[in-house]
Amino acid sequence: GLCRGIAGRHSIAAERVLAHSDVAPGRKIDPGEKFPWRTLFEAGVGHLVAAAPVRRGATLTTGDTGGDVEALQSMLALYGYGVEISGVFDRQTEAVVEAFQRHFRPRKVDGVADGSTLRTLQRLLASVRR
């Protein structure tokens, strides 16, 4: 009730309901991957999609470069994460991927952009009402 009321009074879009870790990736990890985002979402607060299953497969990780990294950074930035779109999977990108995972794909928080992370991010972007 309280969160729904605050979001309504201030016209806060669902996707703007954030965690400390979303705002300050790499510096903050709270509220952490055990926070009940699903419960909040089911009560009408926040933005969430079903996380894609974690499976083995290709990944993007620290040190990788190129178009796939740039696409990942672009999608994270489009959702609102503060990440430089450089095409280089650097420490900042890793911290942002970890923050994303903590909030939207908490089953495995490791800063590696695996298929589950990418598919969950794509689902999230597709579900934003613009």
Rank of each mutant, 00 (worst) to 15 (best):
51 A>W: 08
75 M>L: 12
84 E>F: 01
103 H>S: 11
40 L>S: 11
8 G>S: 13
21 S>C: 12
78 L>K: 11
52 A>M: 04
2 L>F: 11
57 G>I: 04
123 R>V: 00
93 T>H: 02
31 P>I: 11
21 S>F: 10
30 D>W: 15
92 Q>V: 01
15 E>M: 00
113 A>M: 12
129 R>L: 10
25 P>V: 02
86 S>P: 00
129 R>I: 04
123 R>K: 15
121 L>V: 01
100 F>C: 01
54 V>L: 11
127 S>K: 09
119 R>F: 00
118 L>C: 03
113 A>I: 09
44 G>W: 09
43 A>S: 14
121 L>F: 04
98 E>G: 00
11 S>E: 13
27 R>Y: 13
78 L>G: 05
56 R>M: 05
33 E>D: 11
22 D>W: 03
22 D>K: 04
3 C>W: 15
85 I>D: 09
113 A>L: 11
10 H>W: 10
33 E>N: 07
12 I>F: 11
33 E>T: 04
64 D>Y: 11
58 A>D: 15
66 G>Q: 12
86 S>T: 14
44 G>N: 09
119 R>E: 06
125 L>I: 07
66 G>F: 06
17 V>I: 14
77 A>Q: 07
4 R>C: 04
60 L>V: 09
116 S>K: 08
107 R>V: 10
26 G>W: 05
34 K>P: 00
28 K>T: 03
9 R>Q: 11
29 I>N: 15
76 L>H: 03
116 S>L: 02
80 G>F: 07
20 H>W: 12
66 G>M: 11
68 D>P: 12
107 R>Y: 09
75 M>F: 10
85 I>S: 07
108 K>I: 07
24 A>G: 00
45 V>F: 10
84 E>V: 06
120 T>M: 02
101 Q>Y: 01
65 T>M: 06
87 G>R: 09
81 Y>N: 00
74 S>D: 05
71 A>T: 10
44 G>V: 10
34 K>D: 14
59 T>F: 05
95 A>Q: 15
32 G>T: 09
42 E>C: 06
38 R>D: 11
49 V>A: 08
52 A>I: 04
5 G>K: 12
109 V>M: 13
23 V>P: 10
37 W>F: 06
13 A>N: 06
36 P>K: 13
123 R>E: 00
15 E>F: 03
63 G>S: 14
41 F>E: 10
47 H>I: 02
54 V>F: 14
75 M>V: 00
103 H>P: 01
126 A>D: 06
41 F>N: 06
46 G>E: 12
36 P>N: 15
34 K>H: 15
48 L>P: 02
42 E>F: 05
99 A>Y: 02
92 Q>M: 08
6 I>D: 03
97 V>W: 13
70 E>F: 06
1 G>V: 08
47 H>M: 02
43 A>F: 15
124 L>D: 02
87 G>A: 10
94 E>P: 00
29 I>E: 10
16 R>C: 08
47 H>F: 08
31 P>W: 14
79 Y>K: 04
21 S>Y: 10
15 E>P: 02
